[in-house]
Design a protein around this nucleic acid. Structure first.
Lengths: 137, 137
DNA sequence: GACACTGTAACTATTATTATTACAGTTATT
DNA sequence: AATAACTGTAATAATAATAGTTACAGTGTC
């Protein structure tokens, strides 16, 4: 899986922990050791799905649009990495029974698999992640 | 996920369908539209785990070591793509509470997730894949 | 108006994946 | 024993995916 998922979870976790639940891409980027533009890209996805809001201009940044206890890893996975479980298949080869249909068969199995993964990830909210983090300390 | 998994499933499916359950890397590669060396590499992994056997020299190739109904997608996933669900995390950043522990938290969640995925994939044997393929025709 | 932000596009660098080449080792066939 | 058809594997090249960087327009605050 790519790191968009991790960055999204990281960002939301950080926002949850901050007193005013708000931060800039620069600050988040420093915490996550990545480039600020990458944070803006990832959080832009979350914003488009209504998980967070952003504010431009001085004193601006990113802030929750909903409650950290209501945002689950499932939603974040879907937004940032949906489809990444799907195994890559070589080109369909119509001159071969196996090559012609393998892609379809695997796709349908992994669509199901991704649903199951979604259910599993739905168990964990951002708040749960925050709790786990606090326990680690 | 990388395509090793798909190639492994493809190869085993093809072997199952062939009358003598045997084939060379060249023939499998053509069916899967990839380079023969790649097939040899992937099947080498399966061989090391005892799923198939290989025979060098003229008339050689790959052949099952066990029954297609006993090999599940779970084993194949583990062998070819185990760990690929794990989201990439940026470097641990010890100067930040979140950055310092996020990796651990996500790792443990996704280890569990991969177990669940394994259980799901365990439902499907190569024989099941073959059946699905035949239905598609 | 100066400053501190986000939003995005364009480009570069890095890393991961795949293909290709090369060749040693093995076995069947003649 | 020579040849041909295989696997095994390393080394390298090509391609694709990911991430970093630069640049700048737009927005809100002071």
């Amino acid at each position: 899986m790519n790191s968009d998922f991790s960055l999204a979870v990281h960002s939301l976790t950080l926002l949850t922990l901050l007193p005013d639940h708000m931060s800039s891409s620069d600050a988040i980027a420093e915490s996550a050791s990545v480039h600020p533009v990458r944070i803006r890209k990832v959080l832009s996805l979350l914003r488009k799905q209504g998980l967070i809001k952003s504010k431009e201009g001085t004193g601006g940044g990113f802030i929750f649009a909903s409650n950290p206890s209501e945002i689950t890893l499932r939603e974040i996975y879907k937004i940032t990495s949906g489809g990444s479980l799907q195994p890559k298949c070589p080109d369909v080869n119509n001159s071969c029974v196996v090559g012609a249909n393998m892609k379809d068969v695997l796709c349908s199995i992994f669509l199901d698999a991704e649903d199951h993964l979604g259910e599993f990830l739905g168990q964990y909210s951002i708040e749960d992640v925050v709790k786990s983090l606090k326990q680690k300390q």
